[in-house]
């Protein structure tokens, strides 16, 4: 991963209501603003950067502004203030035409309620984005069939959306977004409407696709487990504001405030935290010839090695010894 972000957002505000731009930068809380001006600040001063190839998850409860945020990124909702730079280009400066170009070629979105067209076959739904940008029939059908294969829907080309299950419909939605070969995929709570089993299947599907096609993704969810499972990094929102940005283990291991702490309290920590979070400096005289593990090894995966070793496990990054872990640390962490 390079350090040059694919998408950078700075000071983003979205306020709904009359004369919204006036209240940008207001220190009032969301409720105070609503009471005093009648305006609703959906997104307040949010900033983040998404690196190429990364899965960036925005997590928050309903009403936290996350869906508004993702719509602001492609200006499906016009932001009130702030800067959105996509691949070096200021999205907010783009005129209608340029914005359409961006949407047609570089960004694509998957929606919670799918947004499929019931009067079109699956194949035509998937080809819709290509049709919009003027691709020929043959080419778009070829590409659509290819993508359908990729999402595991080969053979359903001629079905209509209402003949498919919810999970399959969302695969069509996913295929439609992938068909235009975008640089950035936006997911707006894509699996919230699905039942738990299908949801897990679809999450694995996204992980697989991410591995296969390597797209950069911004993923909106209200489900913490989903956020931690999919995200390379997670942004937590509350009442329109950014509370914390970090890798899953940072969020769980070092919550920024009580809100996040409360939120992550139910997460099985050993499933998220890495050895980095439990290692300690070696005590004088401790034997340092135990097994070696990396600092980003998830604790759950390291348990067997640590517990079966008769001496401290060394945590090593390249050739540097960062610390040691013994069964005591592991057991204490799990017991907590």
């Amino acid at each position: 991963m390079t350090d040059d972000p694919l998408l950078r957002v700075r000071g983003l505000w979205k306020i709904f209501g009359p004369k919204a731009e006036r209240w940008v930068g207001s220190p009032l809380s969301r409720r105070e603003l609503k009471e005093q001006t009648g305006c609703v600040a959906a997104v307040r001063d949010v900033g983040f950067a998404v690196r190429p190839g990364e899965v960036f998850v925005v997590m928050g409860l309903s009403g936290s502004g996350k869906s508004t945020l993702v719509r602001c990124l492609t200006r499906l909702i016009e932001p009130t203030a702030g800067e959105i730079v996509f691949d070096g280009e200021d999205v907010r400066r783009a005129d209608e035409k340029r914005l359409r170009e961006l949407r047609r070629h570089r960004l694509a979105m998957v929606f919670q309620h799918f947004g499929l067209l019931p009067h079109r076959r699956v194949l035509d739904n998937v080809a819709f984005g290509l049709e919009i940008r003027g691709s020929g029939k043959q080419e778009r059908y070829r590409r659509a069939a290819e993508v359908l294969e990729l999402v595991g829907l080969a053979g359903f080309e001629n079905s209509y959306p209402d003949q498919l299950s919810g999970g399959m419909q969302q695969r069509v939605g996913l295929a439609r977004a992938l068909a235009v070969d975008p640089d950035l995929l936006l997911f707006d709570e894509p699996f919230s409407a699905l039942d738990p089993l299908i949801r897990r299947e679809m999450q694995n599907e996204v992980i697989r696709l991410h591995r296969e096609v390597g797209k950069t993704m911004v993923f909106i969810t209200h489900d913490l487990a989903e956020a931690l499972k999919l995200g390379d990094r997670v942004l937590i929102m509350r009442d329109g504001e950014l509370v914390q940005t970090g890798t899953p283990d940072e969020v769980v291991g070092a919550p920024a405030d009580d809100y996040v702490r409360d939120f992550v309290s139910d997460v099985p920590r050993s499933h998220v935290l890495t050895l980095r979070w439990v290692m300690r400096d070696p005590l004088p005289g401790e034997p340092l010839d135990g097994p070696e593990l990396g600092p980003d090894e998830i604790i759950r995966n390291a348990v067997r090695t640590v517990l079966s070793a008769d001496r401290p496990v060394r945590v090593v990054d390249k050739d540097d010894l960062l610390g040691v872990v013994t069964s005591a640390e592991i057991l204490e962490m799990i017991a907590r």
Binding site: R103, R104, F114, I132
Partner: peptide
């Protein structure tokens, strides 16, 4: 359905395309 319209818009459809195709 507003979702269908939004999906079309997010794919870069012009207002005319939204009207005719969605």
């Amino acid at each position: 359905s507003p979702v269908a319209v939004e999906a079309g818009t997010s794919l870069g459809a012009t207002p005319r395309q939204i009207l005719r195709r969605v």
